[in-house]
């Protein structure tokens, strides 16, 4: 569960990226977080993975209170949140299988657990035949699936994706969204950050819209940005 209460983030440059944000995302939900470029979407994600410290307010993520979290607890918080980025962030000289296995390796899984789990997750994202390939031998959509597999491999409570389809064509983007939806159907909370209005409107999901660091809409009525506000 994610709970933001009156969260403000002011960067050291003085830029007020978030201004009194309140939001709650319950376990098992699928949520789009939308808004124009520079509205504060990435800041929200960086706050909830404790990559940034909040300026004021309070944030709770999967039971961790981020305003008081200890440095050494942060890795354990991150294990509950699988993160996906626009640029995939795969390790170039590792195969697909190794990239996904790496996600388990760095949290101390045994090789037996890895051998059992990785094929299952690769199948889940539709890459069961791509395990021996290197990332650059795959299409962008496939690379993003590898990143999704790696995010999923430790069975996190939620998946958070920051513009996951920003580098993909519309069909591949749609396929990725379908994949995230099916992952959500298996019980994982999913939050997708995007500014692609059409894509969002092809699904009937909860949409949280932010602009200038404020939540301006939150509901099931599709992508909604009132340009006048």
């Amino acid at each position: 569960m994610i709970l933001f209460r009156n969260v403000t983030k002011v960067y050291s440059t003085g830029s007020r990226a978030l201004d009194g944000v309140n939001l709650q995302i319950d376990d098992g939900e699928f949520v789009f977080l939308v808004g124009p470029s520079g509205s504060g979407k990435s800041t929200i994600i960086k706050l909830l993975t404790a990559e940034l410290e909040l300026t004021s307010g309070s944030i709770e993520v999967n039971g961790y209170k981020l305003e008081t979290i200890k440095k050494r607890q942060i890795p354990y918080l991150r294990r509950t949140v699988g993160v996906i980025f626009q640029d995939f962030r795969l390790i170039d000289n590792k195969t697909v299988f190794e990239n996904v296995a790496y996600g388990m390796h760095v949290v101390g899984a045994s090789s037996k657990e890895i051998q059992e789990r990785v094929p299952y997750v690769l199948e889940l994202v539709g890459l069961e035949n791509r395990g021996r390939r290197l990332p650059h031998e795959l299409s962008g959509g496939e690379q993003q699936r590898v990143a999704i597999a790696r995010a999923l491999v430790n069975n996190p409570a939620m998946i958070v994706a920051d513009e996951p389809t920003g580098n993909l064509d519309p069909q591949r983007s749609y396929d990725i969204m379908m994949l995230l939806e099916s992952i959500n159907a298996l019980g994982t909370t999913v939050m997708v950050v995007t500014h692609e209005q059409e894509l969002v409107n092809r699904f009937t999901k909860r949409v949280i819209a932010i602009k200038d660091g404020k939540v301006i809409n939150d509901g099931m009525d599709g992508y909604y940005i009132n340009e006048e506000t």
Binding site: T49, R72, P75, Y76, L77, R78, R79, V83, R89, I91, Y102, G103, V106, V107, G108, R150, N154
Partner: peptide
């Protein structure tokens, strides 16, 4: 550094 950033993102401890 990219690999280290990935490790951090996945939840590797500093010790690791």
């Amino acid at each position: 550094r990219d690999e280290i950033a990935i490790m951090k993102m996945i939840g590797a401890t500093n010790r690791f």
